[in-house]
Nucleic acid binder design. Structure first.
Lengths: 144, 144
DNA sequence: GGTCTATTTGCAACAATGTTGCAAATAATT
DNA sequence: AATTATTTGCAACATTGTTGCAAATAGACC
């Protein structure tokens, strides 16, 4: 049994000062329905109905700008996006969490419960964000 | 006064079972002459003489395969490459070190002296590699 | 409901990045 | 110098991302 996420998504868009449009609702729905990060082409292939490639790019850009999702670059250069857990806004993103990229299924997950260990930067360096990307085999793929 | 790195580079190529060719010597020379990581387009713009784009891609791929350099994906999806410090080979890469991307000059550095803090993955996940990418302002840019 | 306006979308065109197949050139070996 | 496996250049193509502009539309106001 699947819960209707429509109203949640709409509220989420409103909270982040984004106009409610069909493509935004549908893209946000995809993110809410999947446990892993999505690439532009994932989204392009999954969307129902005819939406322009450019519009998908702009949708993702607006989501990032308003703090709804964050970008995750993979080892091979593929850029994926995942929902920000909470309390991200246009002003402040703080999604310094651990990402895990499975070499078998290729999917990327946010390990929300694991906090990123901090490091001490060398003298002179200042810090704004950090990204901890691990590669290996995920729970599901290890079962088989 | 600049030291000739030609012979060092040649030995390095030989050690990694790579044939000595003009483009490989020159690309390796670029890496040895710069403290920061280089992207494909950095290399394309800097190389002296006419080399094909495709050949540069293949040069970088062979360097990665043989453990001479490693890939570093930046936040925006740009892929850069940097020399492996030492003891990387075709069989084993272990360049789990910290990368720093400066938001001001845009350059990426390997912070060789800082070891990557380890984390405990959730039950069921197995681990092969990790990559710690920090963003901020580098030493040079902070001076100004 | 209808009108207005700023935002969003689709389209076209383009730029950048990365890949593949194949023939010619060349590095290393004999 | 001859041989052979590797590497290079070229052409063609695939994917990914960007920009400008006119048409469509979401939200606000009456």
């Amino acid at each position: 049994m699947k819960k209707h996420t429509h109203s949640n998504g709409t509220t989420l868009l409103e909270n982040h000062k984004l106009r409610i449009t069909p493509i935004r609702q549908q893209v946000l729905g995809l993110f809410m329905g999947k446990p892993h990060a999505l690439s532009h082409s994932d989204i392009e292939q999954t969307l129902v109905g005819d939406f322009d490639r450019v519009t998908i790019y702009r949708t993702l850009t607006s989501f990032v700008e308003k703090g709804l999702v964050h970008k995750i670059p993979a080892e091979n250069g593929v850029v994926r996006y995942a929902l920000c857990k909470d309390s991200c806004s246009e002003e402040q993103h703080h999604h310094s969490h651990v990402h895990f990229n499975c070499g078998t299924c290729g999917q990327t997950f946010c390990l929300e419960n694991i906090s990123v260990p901090t490091i001490t930067l060398p003298q002179g360096y200042s810090f704004t964000d950090m990204n901890y990307l691990t590669t290996g085999t995920c729970k599901n793929c290890n079962k088989q």
